[in-house]
């Protein structure tokens, strides 16, 4: 991972380019914002946007959160699903784990360093988007509460942490790419789909199990701050999954 820093930086830079794009669209969109707002009330868009569709898109910040929020959800989904899951399994696939673990490195530390690298690269997403959003807002001469924007970015990062830890746990359990990706896909994509499903009746409680329901852009912008109860749930789940990944990797045998 240390040697792949360029690839690690390139993706966040590429993703953050959504901000200049949104900035460039805003002046022409602003003219027709009212009619778009009506279209967004349709059930299809509501399902697509989930809790992001709550904002007022006739304002710059509402439009920004809708566009960037959707992008960030997809980033969280794919980054958390694929990258931590591959942290160990790629070493198993390439057979490099055998040599590395013959050195006096505690397994938990090895895993922590790998996950640390993932967290270091992941922080680039919120940092770059925040910086470009501030620059874009000033460029447009619009207003936006940068404090709330900061909270949204913190929420995004914590979701990347918690879902990434779940994905890492899958890697520790299975030590094999296809099964790990299937498990992490089922767990993370499943949670995402859960938030997008219509009313499930008696099974609605399942929606509460989705981490995508917590620290969402819609909730944070609505409250104007970080909901501490949601924060503790996301961080708690992340820490438990991380501890589980360390424990399983430390205890399990490397039979492959």
């Amino acid at each position: 991972m240390r040697k792949r820093w360029l690839g690690g930086i390139a993706t966040p830079v590429l993703v953050s380019m959504i901000v200049p794009l949104v900035v460039s669209i805003w002046p022409s969109f602003k003219e027709q914002a009212a009619s778009f707002a009506e279209i967004l009330q349709s059930p299809i868009y509501q399902a697509l946007l989930g809790q992001l569709g709550m904002g007022d898109i006739t304002t710059w910040s509402g439009f920004f959160y809708m566009e960037v929020g959707v992008t960030l959800e997809w980033v969280i989904l794919f980054v958390a699903m694929f990258i931590p899951a591959r942290l160990i399994t790629s070493e198993v696939d390439k057979n490099t784990l055998d040599l590395t673990l013959s050195y006096p490195i505690p397994r938990w530390r090895y895993l922590l360093e790998k996950f640390g690298a993932y967290l270091a690269y992941s922080i680039l997403y919120p940092l770059l988007i925040y910086a470009l959003a501030v620059a874009g807002t000033n460029y447009l001469g619009e207003t936006m509460d940068f404090g709330v924007l900061g909270y949204v970015m913190v929420g995004t990062y914590l979701q990347l942490f918690a879902l990434g830890a779940i994905s890492l746990l899958c890697g520790s359990v299975f030590l094999e790419s296809s099964r790990t990706l299937s498990a992490s896909g089922a767990l993370i994509l499943g949670q995402y789909v859960m938030t997008r499903l219509p009313d499930l009746g008696a099974l609605n409680f399942l929606k509460d199990l989705s981490l995508f329901n917590y620290l969402s852009t819609g909730t944070i912008t609505g409250l104007g701050s970080l909901p501490m109860n949601e924060l503790s749930i996301v961080v708690g789940v992340g820490l438990i999954a991380l501890a589980g990944a360390f424990y399983v990797f430390h205890k399990r045998e490397l039979a492959y």
Binding site: N95, L99, S102, Y103
Partner: peptide
């Protein structure tokens, strides 16, 4: 295991090394 690993050297069967190093 960790104490032992400080004093051993190992070449595994089908040795694989980090390709980009």
């Amino acid at each position: 295991a960790l104490e032992i690993r400080k004093r051993i050297g190992y070449v595994p069967e089908d040795l694989a090394l980090y390709e980009n190093f």
